[in-house]
């Protein structure tokens, strides 16, 4: 059932979101959902040490997220890590959805799958984790690459 975390196929963002919704739908209870999330966190590919630097940190109040992005063939590849495993699971979900897409697609992504899989509280504007800031940073990176492309 587990899907590769970095999608190398040609799925759109919406298709990946739909896949994730179906994976989570199997579980009626929070327990299964969180176990899946924790598994996803544990399977997140290791962030290269050279990218685990101070300037890559997106600080939430409680858990820390490191986010690195680079452009390859017009698409943004995200890699990331977190010191909390549940946040890491959320990070893995975001990477699976947004990585390997064009800046435009990333900027237009609505990301409403988080609500549909019943994990909305992770997107609440509390200071409890860095996820909201992470999504913002992913979109800012996309915007930066987009502007860079249009200039060059």
């Amino acid at each position: 059932m587990k899907k590769p975390l970095v999608c190398l196929n040609k799925m759109t963002i919406e298709e990946t979101e739909q896949d994730i919704i179906e994976e989570f739908e199997v579980f009626d209870e929070w327990l299964g959902k969180y176990e899946l999330l924790i598994d996803m966190g544990k399977s997140l590919p290791i962030l290269a040490e050279k990218n685990r630097t101070e300037d890559k940190i997106i600080k939430g109040c409680q858990s820390t997220v490191w986010l690195h992005s680079e452009l390859a063939d017009g698409k943004i590849i995200f890699t990331a890590d977190s010191d909390a495993i549940i946040t890491k699971g959320m990070v893995a979900l975001m990477i699976r959805v947004l990585s390997n897409h064009t800046p435009d697609d990333i900027l237009n992504a609505k990301l409403d799958f988080v609500d549909k899989i019943g994990l909305t509280q992770h997107l609440s504007p509390t200071r409890s984790n860095g996820l909201v800031s992470m999504i913002k940073q992913m979109k800012l990176d996309a915007l930066a690459y987009k502007s860079k492309n249009s200039v060059s």
């Binding site: 969180y34 409680q62 549940i86």
Partner: peptide, 19 residues
């Protein structure tokens, strides 16, 4: 991580402080 502990306990209806 305290955040993970607090998150799971919250699912169990138990409010603790973390951070």
């Amino acid at each position: 991580h305290p955040f993970d502990i607090g998150t799971i306990l919250d699912q169990l209806g138990i409010a603790v402080r973390t951070g």
